[in-house]
Design a binder for these strands. Structure first.
Length: 379
DNA sequence: GCTCGGAAGCTGCGACTGCT
DNA sequence: AGCAGTCGCAGCTTCCGAGC
């Protein structure tokens, strides 16, 4: 590994890449945050949730729709799925082109308002591209296969209400601080969202145990130890329990300063008790990603490095290495890498809570939720 | 030395506009 | 209809001073 810690790497980025900015460390930190997001997105895609993912969607608080929060990623029930084939001769694929192809294939677009996003523009892909929206759903498209002169596209309609949300946070070490950084205050923003999104709410008992409470539509409720109740909801088929349930997942980069010896700092405790699942993306993982793909890639992945460097440089015109905007060829290489190295990628993550569970359990829970009969549940 | 509140820098992105 | 440019917001991040 080229860098023993991400904090050193942040310094390298600050000194080499961002020295032209007024505040190089800040810019480097922001970039590392973007990388945490990119890694998470491609893991979810590799796990098979492409058609469920949305990006930066406004999410209403449970029982309080006046307040919404943009959530990084969410998984939504898909109510319709289709694939279409379009001609690749144009380098530009607009929402309109896809919508026209859908009309030609007798896909019912009634009640959907068109958006003007481009799925592909100048070789840059728009991930989770929304092409139309109705009151209760979004219509999205993505590339399924890219062969010869034609492109095969996924088109899928997602229900507005998600069943899982993900928030990614990167927090660095501050200069001169001996303890955990106070900037983790900002991560509490994510914690707040996590605590207000789902119908499964967290409460404390008199003796300090964490319990969950969930209301049914008739006003009755269930209270139980939280992890038990969460599992019960995830694996139930009870419409009443699932209707407005949202699993909340936090992914934070480990800056090596969350603990003093074996004791978690207050900030980490706050995150642990706010998210249903809290994951570390380890220093080792982030370093490996950066080293293998961005700094010292093997020949076949060199192109990713070029895209990354051209996106994070003085005077760059357009960033093509973010969770939304991604260079088409880099997208393919990333998917190949994640597919070929899935085991290694999964080892980049540690589960902080629930501490009895493993990453494979999270994957199972996501699949379980994805495969529910949402049409019946949300009816 | 620590916590808290506020400030500041960087950038994606949607909305808007005006041109072709 | 497509596209480029502008603008402001929001979210990402780190920094810093006051007060204890």
């Amino acid at each position: 590994m080229a860098y023993e810690s991400v904090d050193k790497l942040q310094k390298v980025l600050a000194d080499d890449v961002f020295k032209y900015t007024k505040d190089p460390k800040k810019a480097a930190g922001r970039t590392l945050g973007t990388l945490v997001e990119v890694i998470t997105y491609y893991l979810l895609k590799t796990w098979g949730f492409n058609n469920q993912i949305s990006i930066e969607r406004g999410l209403e608080e449970y029982g309080n729709p006046d307040i919404t929060h943009n959530v990084e990623y969410a998984l939504h029930p898909t109510v319709r799925n289709s694939t279409i084939t379009i001609d690749k001769s144009d380098k530009l694929i607009t929402a309109n082109i896809v919508l026209k192809a859908l009309e030609a294939a007798n896909f019912d677009l009634n009640g959907l308002e068109r958006k003007s996003n481009n799925l592909l523009s100048n070789g840059i892909l728009r991930n989770a591209c929304t092409i139309a929206a109705s009151d209760n759903s979004f219509l999205l498209t993505s590339i399924k296969t890219d062969k010869g002169d034609t492109l095969e596209l996924h088109v899928y309609e997602q229900s507005k209400k998600p069943y899982v949300i993900f928030e990614c946070k990167r927090v660095g070490i501050e200069e001169g601080m001996s303890k955990g950084p106070q900037t983790i205050e900002k991560a509490k923003q994510g914690a707040y969202v996590a605590r207000t999104a789902s119908s499964l709410q967290k409460i404390r008992t008199e003796t300090g145990e964490l319990h969950g409470i969930i209301y049914k539509s008739n006003g009755s409720y269930i209270i139980k130890p939280f992890v038990d109740l969460m599992e019960e909801v995830v694996y139930s088929n009870d419409k009443e329990l699932l209707r407005r349930f949202i699993l909340t997942v936090g992914i934070v980069s480990n800056h090596g300063n969350w603990f003093t010896s074996e004791n978690p700092n207050k900030e980490l405790k706050v995150l642990v008790q706010s998210y249903d699942w809290l994951l570390f993306l380890t220093d080792k993982g982030l370093s490996e990603f950066i080293d293998h793909l961005l700094l010292n890639p093997p020949k076949e992945q060199k192109f990713i490095r070029e895209v990354f460097l051209s996106s994070y440089t003085e005077g760059k015109t357009k960033n093509q290495f973010t969770k939304v905007q991604m260079n088409l060829e880099a997208n393919r290489l990333l998917l190949d890498y994640f597919n070929a190295n899935l085991k290694a990628v999964e080892s980049w993550f540690n589960i902080i809570s629930p501490n009895v569970k493993k990453l494979s359990d999270l994957k199972s829970e996501l699949s379980e939720l994805t495969n529910k009969d949402w049409a019946a549940i949300l009816k």
